[in-house]
């Protein structure tokens, strides 16, 4: 309950900060091109204020939140998956799409699976990853002839 209140306050502050950031940028605009952005930014900041006021003064907090089932969230896994995605996407243009994606598929599926690492447990993810990459290669490069991000490998 209290947590949600804090969360809303943080959201409203972020909203106000974004409004401010956008507002500074409207300075270079010339009329009539500045009206629409200014109105939109204005509404956004008003909504931020409404949320802030509600978060501070509204009493019936968290009434509905109790209905939700507690989430089975593993914080380590959350950050791991986000950094994994970041690393993957930044590597794609360097190493090439197919190689990076293949490595990403293998590493993620191994780390998400709770089995212990052994030679046997590696076979399945590697096979699946190669099959997926082969299917993608067939669809995108051979059949559709759509360019994919290239790098030092393919």
């Amino acid at each position: 309950m209290q947590k949600e209140r804090v969360q809303d306050i943080v959201v409203s502050i972020i909203v106000l900060a974004i409004s401010f950031l956008f507002y500074i940028n409207t300075k270079t605009l010339t009329p009539p091109a500045d009206i629409f952005p200014k109105v939109v930014i204005g509404i956004f900041s008003i909504l931020g204020v409404i949320l802030l006021v509600k978060a501070i003064f509204y009493r019936k907090y968290g009434e509905e939140a109790d209905e939700e089932t507690p989430e089975k969230v593993d914080m380590k896994r959350r950050w791991f998956s986000i950094t994994g995605l970041l690393a993957y996407i930044f590597l794609v243009p360097i190493l090439g799409f197919y190689v990076t994606s293949g490595i990403y598929l293998v590493l993620v599926s191994i780390s998400l699976n709770d089995e212990k690492i052994s030679v046997k447990s590696l076979v399945k993810p590697i096979t699946i990853a190669s099959l997926v990459m082969l299917a993608l290669y067939g669809t995108f490069t051979v059949f559709l002839r759509v360019p994919v991000p290239g790098g030092i490998f393919i």
Binding site: S81, L85, Y88, I89, V92, F97, S101, Y104, L105, V108, S109, L112, N113, P125, I128, V132, L136, F140, V146, P147, V148, P149
Partner: peptide, 17 residues
Amino acid sequence: HYLAPIIGVLAVIGSYS
């Protein structure tokens, strides 16, 4: 553990192409 990374890969190739 297979589906999640596959969706990730598809999202990348999809938005690139």
